[in-house]
Design a protein around this nucleic acid. Sequence first.
DNA 1: TTTTAGCACTCAAACAGTCAGAGTGCTAAA
DNA 2: TTTAGCACTCTGACTGTTTGAGTGCTAAAA
Lengths: 360, 360
Amino acid sequence: MQDKNTELSERKKAILKAIIDTHINLGEPVGSKYLTQYKQIAFSSATIRNEMAELEDMGYLEQLHTSSGRIPSELGYRFYVDQLMQQYRMTQAELGELNKLQTLKAAELDRILDRATKLMSMLTNYTGVALKRAPARQTVARFDAMYLSPRNFILVMLTASGNVKTRQVRLGFDVSRDTLERLTMVLNDCIAGLDLDGITLPVMLDMQRRVPDGERLINPIISAIYETVGEVDDGELMFDGVNNLLNYPEYSDIDRVRDMLGLFDRQDDLREVLSHDASDQTNVYIGSENSVEVMNNSSLIFRAVKSGDKVIGAIGVIGPRRMDYSKVVTLVDYMSKNISSMLEPSGLLGIEHCQDEEDS
Amino acid sequence: MQDKNTELSERKKAILKAIIDTHINLGEPVGSKYLTQYKQIAFSSATIRNEMAELEDMGYLEQLHTSSGRIPSELGYRFYVDQLMQQYRMTQAELGELNKLQTLKAAELDRILDRATKLMSMLTNYTGVALKRAPARQTVARFDAMYLSPRNFILVMLTASGNVKTRQVRLGFDVSRDTLERLTMVLNDCIAGLDLDGITLPVMLDMQRRVPDGERLINPIISAIYETVGEVDDGELMFDGVNNLLNYPEYSDIDRVRDMLGLFDRQDDLREVLSHDASDQTNVYIGSENSVEVMNNSSLIFRAVKSGDKVIGAIGVIGPRRMDYSKVVTLVDYMSKNISSMLEPSGLLGIEHCQDEEDS
DNA sequence: TTTTAGCACTCAAACAGTCAGAGTGCTAAA
DNA sequence: TTTAGCACTCTGACTGTTTGAGTGCTAAAA
């Protein structure tokens, strides 16, 4: 066992890099003989073998059994990501696809992230993920109502974070257009800006007094609001291209597939990870560096998406441990910056003191 | 080969039923000896063997190899579903879960179907699917706008089919509240009720004249409308519990899993099937009765969901061919009727001649 | 001192052979 | 018409063998 502090020699680095590069490509253990074809490594297989043995002692490589080639260990991948891999150069086609996102410049964040996720999965052939963060507390900033018929209307709610939620309300009795208008006014007046706990009995009684038919009307409205806004909303998780993973032999085991599908189904683990970073860098979690157990054989690369200084989400890619780190890091980087630049802070949360101005 | 027209003897029916019941339970070929434990079949294994051989000749059973037990053929399942299986009795727990859906009585169809899908997958342990049909032509019945800031507002569109779509619009210049109000009025006046092809140049020019700042304002608005309403919308497909399927040995083959995930990913095949039935009955597609090739080893049970006479969607379950038909048919039946009854026609599409009344 | 050729060694994967067990079809007796 | 019994078939589990890829080590070459 050699001293860990020893810097790796250039030759060792070259060999390690070559091993990881080919393993990422082919997915199989790499043997000493195979490496002789690289012109950067002009030595016999025997020499390479010695180096490989040392690299294994140092913890950068692993062997499945005595007579198999080597595969990179997590430490190996880590070193590769930190120091070895070369900058990926995006193709024109890739740049073109990525820049298409600009078309959605004026659209909602949901839509942007959704498209971005699809794009990432398409360009990388892994699974694209994105998280839209939920604000700490959901409050409705503004109410509006759309009259349909005497017993039907649509309640439109704009949350403080700039989301729009709608909810159809059906009543057992008739309501006039005027009443509806009055209702919107009172809602904006009394409970806009309050979080759900703020809607106390006195508030409700007050509203009931101020709206015609209030005794019958207010209660169903409030519960509609509760249902819609109060939905457990820890942030929306999106993903695309889960079945891309099935093309990699790493996921040919049915249990692995079950694990991954479960991960995407339950969502909470991923959400936890993705929302737990506000830094201005691209995170690379290799295998078990991630605390989520079912991801121990996968890697996750993601980066926060910001609007100004505010983290409003994250976008990333999940794939096998032997992922094309160079390419994925570059793409995630570019994509995240791209989206962030699309979201000038004035745009998305630009609700200007709407409450004060509202009342007639 | 016996005459197919011959009615099956009672004994044959009992044996066939027993075979299918146990195969559905255990998932393995059923042998003659195993069947002797049923008290309804009080014969020796030799007798049963003879009957089984005949049932195979008649096409109801199949054998994987000479010395294996029998499994039901598609014809066998068909006969079972049509004549043999007994009525499933829902448990109290199941009924309770199903009836919980009533809480959403006043909610949108999306929400109802989404919950219903989850419920179906949960109760059956297969995959629940639902389709919300798209109307023949998407038109916006009503516009509304919510002012956020001088350069930001939210456009709320109510489609003719009762859906609400929202779209944030960000402008490069300031717009006043009054202008926005005027804009809504003009939109409702000029293009509400029109389908997208109806928005011709003259119409747009007219609108530009009638709104302050119209030359700059109308164009981005129209393209926002196009983008939002014109999205390819063949009906929304939802599903839940895809990974339930992984628990069945039928799907332990990675290619099968890939096929199924692809089916849910592409959506169009399923959408095609689910939207192609307006009957008042529960459809049972066994294996290759379904034209979708990747579903040849699965079964699909679904039923249209109606609002009055109008078919507005469908709900169903996908599972392995040896599905618990009795249970699933009963649940799908109940669920579909339940939802249909929640949607009195007056409720969901109850927009009453809104266009005429609108103008000031 | 470093590199390399060569050789013995190890292990997985593919293949063939054997065996037990489950289930069958058929025949002859009940 | 039913059934006991037997010969037969096929799968799956297990074993042993072979092949080939790749290794570590040693001794010679550079």
